[in-house]
């Protein structure tokens, strides 16, 4: 049986007929294997979900306890029909995993989104040997080499010092990026309270419960607080909040945005960002190539992102590549 008959894209998402399941399906399906809790990968309404404990918890926080009819925590090797699956850390967000699928003598690894840079909120990525490596390619252009995160946080703290009368509003996605920014701030010695938009609170508290020491977090509410109280403070919010009347409560705010896309100036300007922070939870170009070399698969399949450039590079390296062109992933804010 050829590899592309054992795992292939369908309108619902990537499908494995041997186990009759989908990986990160875009629409409700009978049985879903979920790599991580970001909304474009983890959707509600499936018959059954197999995922890490933390991904299941995160889905319950986001969608309510009834997000699926039945759920199973991924521990060790799990037999599903004629396939055997296991989950391995992906280094992307809390609970994120690559999914290894063994069927008919062939081994696939579906990465979901992954990151090779040390990330205090996620277990580090483990290269898993396989025949077919199914990778993301969000930042697959040679212009993407993510800078040192500590230096990016240094830019934020320098700006806070330079503008003590202004609030710094940092746009950060609720799952992963927000907690990463907080941990980087703590590592850089910022032990003052960090203020949170309401949409970030539950996931931050969940990280604390899971043993991630986020320090003194407070709601960015105006009860008992005036505009001036936010001067010199750091406030985290989902980027969408900057358009809302919510942003009016802060004194002359400096709009910051933590994302890998901030590498590109036009993107930062388009979003009206005054302080771009290049912080990504994805593999950059060198890490994508390094990972493919380490895993050394017979074939590399590309789920989503800049597949043209990665295909070209695989070709130059004499590797076999195949674009799956899955549509529906990659919320810009998450990268």
């Amino acid at each position: 049986m050829t590899a592309d008959a054992q795992l292939y894209p369908t309108p619902e998402g990537l499908y494995c007929p041997a186990g009759d399941f989908h990986v990160d399906p875009l629409r409700p399906v009978r049985r879903a294997l979920i790599t991580h809790g970001h909304a474009d990968h983890a959707r509600p309404g499936h018959g059954a979900v197999l995922a890490t404990r933390q991904t299941l918890d995160i889905m319950a926080i986001r969608y309510g306890e009834d997000f699926t009819q039945s759920r199973q925590e991924a521990v060790g090797r799990v037999r599903i029909g004629d396939a055997e699956v296991s989950f391995h850390p992906a280094g992307h967000v809390l609970g994120s995993a690559q999914i290894e699928i063994a069927t008919g003598g062939r081994r696939f690894v579906v990465t979901g989104d992954y990151c090779r840079h040390p990330n205090p909120v996620a277990a580090p990525f483990e290269p898993v040997p396989c025949d077919v490596f199914v990778t993301e390619a969000t930042f697959a252009l040679p212009v993407f080499r993510h800078p040192d995160p500590a230096a990016e946080i240094g830019k934020l703290l320098a700006s806070v010092r330079a503008f003590p009368d202004r609030a710094h509003l940092v746009g950060a996605y609720a799952l992963g990026k927000a907690q990463r920014v907080i941990m980087l701030l703590r590592e850089a010695g910022w032990d003052a309270p960090i203020y949170l938009h309401g949409a970030l609170e539950r996931l931050c508290w969940y990280h604390v419960e899971q043993g991630v020491p986020l320090g003194d977090l407070r709601p960015a509410t105006t009860d008992r607080k005036t505009k001036a109280d936010f001067a010199g403070q750091i406030v985290l919010a989902p980027p969408s909040a900057f358009a809302a009347t919510w942003a009016q409560r802060f004194p002359d705010p400096v709009i910051c945005f933590a994302s890998g896309w901030m590498q590109i100036r036009a993107r930062a300007r388009q979003r009206g960002v005054e302080l771009p922070l290049i912080l990504s939870d994805h593999a950059d170009w060198p890490d994508l190539l390094r990972t493919i070399d380490e895993v050394d698969p017979q074939e590399t399949w590309i789920t989503h992102g800049r597949e043209d450039a990665l295909m070209r590079e695989l070709d130059l390296r004499g590797r076999v590549g195949r674009p799956l062109r899955l549509v529906g992933y990659e919320d810009e804010a998450e990268a």
């Binding site: 252009l141 040679p142 212009v143 080499r145 590109i264 036009a266 800049r306 043209d308 450039a309």
Partner: peptide, 18 residues
């Protein structure tokens, strides 16, 4: 690879710098 990158970045000096 340069062409794909330049298309994405949109600025010659910036693309080369990166």
């Amino acid at each position: 690879l340069f062409r794909l990158s330049y298309d994405f970045v949109g600025d010659l000096a910036e693309t080369i710098a990166l």
